[in-house]
Write a protein that binds this DNA or RNA. Structure first.
Lengths: 216, 216
DNA sequence: GAGTGTGAATGTATTCACAGCA
DNA sequence: TGCTGTGAATACATTCACACTC
C-alpha cells in the first residue's frame, strides 16, 4: 500500500476552507469553483488540496457542505476539545483569554501563568492564573498539549522551555522574540511586528514592478 | 543587467534575521552558522537568503552585525516610519494600539475607526478614533498605506473594502473571517483559531524531524 | 453537461557541493 | 584555514490537461 503525500500547505488551507464552509449553512452543496471564489483562489487548487486527503465530492454535483465540513474537521483533529495553557497574562494574554472565537471552535484556554503576584490565584476571564513554577505539575495533571506565549521578549525562550518540559507539543508564540524548540514541538511565531515588516517589503516591491499592471 | 529573483520566503525570513541581530549588540560580527543557530535553521540557508539581495559578508570572517542590520532594514523598507489605520477598537484593537513593539520598529498606529458611538471622538491609547465613514478622507489626507482589521467576522470584508478604496496597500486581518482583496493589495490573515487548527493537525500527524519555525 | 479527481508538466524553494576570497 | 557566495541538483508545490462519473 502506497503512502499518500499530503503537502503541508494543503493541510494549512483546509482550515480556511472549513471557515468558509461554516458560513454556508444555507445551501446543501457547493462546487470547488464556488468555494474557491470565497477564498480568492482557484477551483483546481481546492480539488487538489482535498484530493490529498480523500475523495469527498460527487462528479457533476460538487461537495456536500455538511459532510465536507465534518471530514475536514476530522482530518485537522477538531472532532474533540483541545485545552491550552497560556503564559503571560498581560493585555494581549487577557484579550486572548476572553476571545470568544476559541471556544466556538473547540479550543479552551484552561490555565494561565504569570509571575506577577497581583494576578496569581485570581481568575481572569474565568481562567485561573498560577505561578509558572507550577507549570509542569498543572499541565501534566490536566493533560494539556498546546501552549500560547504572550510574555515580553526577554521571557519568551524560558517560557517555551518550561512549556516543553511540561509536555506541550505545539506552541503559538505571540511574543516579539525568535524562539527555538526541538523538532518534535510545532512552534509557530505570530509576531505582529514581523508581519508588518514583511508587508512593507511587499508594498515597496509591488509598487516598483506595478507600473504595467496598474489599475485603480 | 539581469534581474535577480528574490524568493518570497527568503524576504520573509529577513525579518527574523533582523530580530536576532538586534539582540546581539555585544559582538561586532557573526557567522552565518551562528546566526542560524539562533533561528533554529542552517547556515547555508542564511547565506542563500542573504545572497538573493546582495553580498553583505566577508569571506573567512562573517557578517558585520551593524552593517547587516542596516542593509536588511533597507531591503524591508524600515528606514522610515510607516503609519497604520486600525479598524475595530475592541479588546484586541485596543491591545494592539498600546503595543509598545510597534513604535520601536518604526510602525505607528495613527488612527482608529469604530462604529460604536462611545468610542468615536475619544482617544484610546493616545490614538484618535473616528467613525468608519470618514476612512477615505482621513486615510488619504494622512497618506496612510497600511491597515489592520480587528472587527467581528461579519464586518471584516466591508472593513477591508473600505480600507482598499481609501488607498491602503497592505492589510493585516485579525478577524476570524476569510477576506478577499484584489491582487495589488497584500492581505495577511492573522487568524488565531486557524493557527490553532493547523497546530492540531501537526500534533496528530507527528512532525517527523521537521521543524522549521513557520510563520503564519 | 457539469462537475470531480489525478498523472504529467511546470514553477518555486531548499539543499548540496564546491569555487573563491580574506 | 575559515567562511561566504552560488550554480547545479533535488525536493516540494502549483498548474495544466484530460479522464472519468453522476
Amino acid at each position: 500500500m502506497t503512502e499518500k503525500k499530503s503537502p503541508e500547505n494543503a493541510a494549512i488551507r483546509l482550515s480556511f476552507y472549513l471557515r468558509c464552509l461554516r458560513k454556508m449553512k444555507k445551501e446543501k452543496s457547493i462546487s470547488s469553483e464556488r468555494l474557491a471564489q470565497f477564498m480568492g483562489t482557484s477551483g483546481v487548487r481546492v480539488r487538489k488540496d482535498l484530493s490529498y486527503f480523500g475523495q469527498f465530492g460527487t462528479r457533476g454535483k460538487g461537495y456536500m457542505i455538511g459532510e465536507l465540513q465534518e471530514q475536514i474537521s476530522k482530518i485537522l483533529g477538531l472532532d474533540r476539545v483541545w485545552t491550552i495553557a497560556l503564559v503571560g497574562v498581560g493585555k494581549l494574554g487577557t484579550a486572548l483569554m476572553g476571545y470568544p472565537g476559541f471556544r466556538k471552535s473547540g479550543f479552551h484556554i484552561k490555565v494561565g501563568f504569570d509571575v506577577k503576584p497581583s494576578k496569581i490565584g485570581r481568575k481572569i476571564a474565568s481562567v485561573p492564573v498560577y505561578h509558572p513554577y507550577r507549570m509542569p505539575t498543572i499541565i501534566r495533571a490536566q493533560k494539556i498539549r498546546m501552549g500560547m506565549i504572550t510574555v515580553p521578549a526577554e521571557a519568551a525562550q524560558e517560557s517555551a522551555d518550561l512549556l516543553i518540559i511540561s509536555g506541550i507539543r505545539a506552541i503559538l508564540n505571540f511574543s516579539p522574540a525568535v524562539v527555538v524548540a526541538p523538532s518534535y514541538v510545532k512552534l509557530t511565531q505570530v509576531d505582529f511586528t514581523t508581519q508588518l515588516e514583511i508587508m512593507t517589503y511587499f508594498i515597496i516591491n509591488r509598487t516598483k514592478e506595478k507600473t504595467q499592471t496598474k489599475l485603480l
